[in-house]
Amino acid sequence: MTEINTVGVIGAGTMGIGGAHAFAAGGLPVVLVDVSEDALDRARDEIATNARMYGLIDPELAGKTDVLDRIIFATDAKLLADADFVVENVTENWAVKRDVYAEIDRICPPHTVFGVNTSAIPITTVASATARPDRVIGVHLMNPVPLKKVVEVIRGFHTSPATIETTQALLRRIGKASVVVADSPGFVTNRVAMLSVNEAIMLVEERVGAAAEIDVLFRQCLGHQMGPLETADLIGLDTVLHSLEVLLDNFNDPRFRPAQLLRRLVAAGRLGRKSGQGFYEYEGKGQ
C-alpha cells in the first residue's frame, strides 16, 4: 500500500473543483492543475464559496474554510511530480484523456496511483495509455464531491489489490466509503443513470411532461433525492452528452443514442448549473 502525502487533481471543472475541495477538507495537500488560468481562478472562487456554504448542508464541513491554504493552483503539470495519488477529471473525451495520461506517466514517480474520474470510459482502456496499468483505477466521484459519502471505485483489468487498498484508504481519510465494481463502460451508476436521464430528456422533448413535473414525480413518488433533469443540470449537459456518446460507441447499442433536445441544448451553450441555464435557471452563474 502506498502512503499518500500529496494528491494531484487534474482538470479544474465541476469535478476537479469538488475533488480538490474534498481532499483539502480531509487535511491533504492538493495540487490542482488545469491548462487554463481562467479556469483556475474560477476554481479558487468557487471552492471559497463552497467551503463557506456546504456547512449549511453537512455540519461536518462547517467552519472548514481553510481549505484554500492546502491547495496549490497550477498550470504546470510538472508540479504533479510530488503527487502520490492523482485524480484526473479532464473532459470526457478519450483523445484528450489519452494525451494527459501519456504526459503524467512521464512526470509522476513510478509509485503514483492514477485515479480515473470518468463518466463512462473503461478504466482498462485508460490504463493501456500508461506504463503502470496495475496502478490505474477508476475513482468515480459524485458531484458535489465534498457532500457525497460514497465513491464508485472501478477495478480495471490490471488494477492490483494494493492499488485498490491504497485508494480505499485514501477515500476513508476524507470520510468516504467506496464500492468496488468491475470495469465496464459507464460502470454501474452511469450505465443506468445516463439512460434514465436521456429518456427523461426525451419525455420533455415529446411534451409528455415539463422538466419540473418529471423531477417532482421522481422525488416525491420514487423517493429519489433529485429528479433526472436537475441531475442532468448538476452533472452538466455536455458531460451527459459525452457520456452517452462513449456508451453508444462502446456498446454499439442504439439505446444509448442521445436525445436530439440534449444535442440542441449543448450546441446552444445551455450546459446546466455551470452555465446558469439548462432545464432550469440558476442565479449568479454564467451570463
Binding site: 464559496t49 456554504m53 449549511l56 448542508i57 417532482v216 422525488r219 433525492q225 433529485m226 442565479e283 449568479g284
Partner: peptide
C-alpha cells in the same frame, strides 16, 4: 417539502 434538493440551500444563501 421535497420540492427542492438540499443544494438549494446554497443557491438561496448565495442569492
Amino acid at each position: 417539502t421535497a420540492g427542492v434538493s438540499s443544494l438549494f440551500a446554497v443557491q438561496l444563501v448565495v442569492w
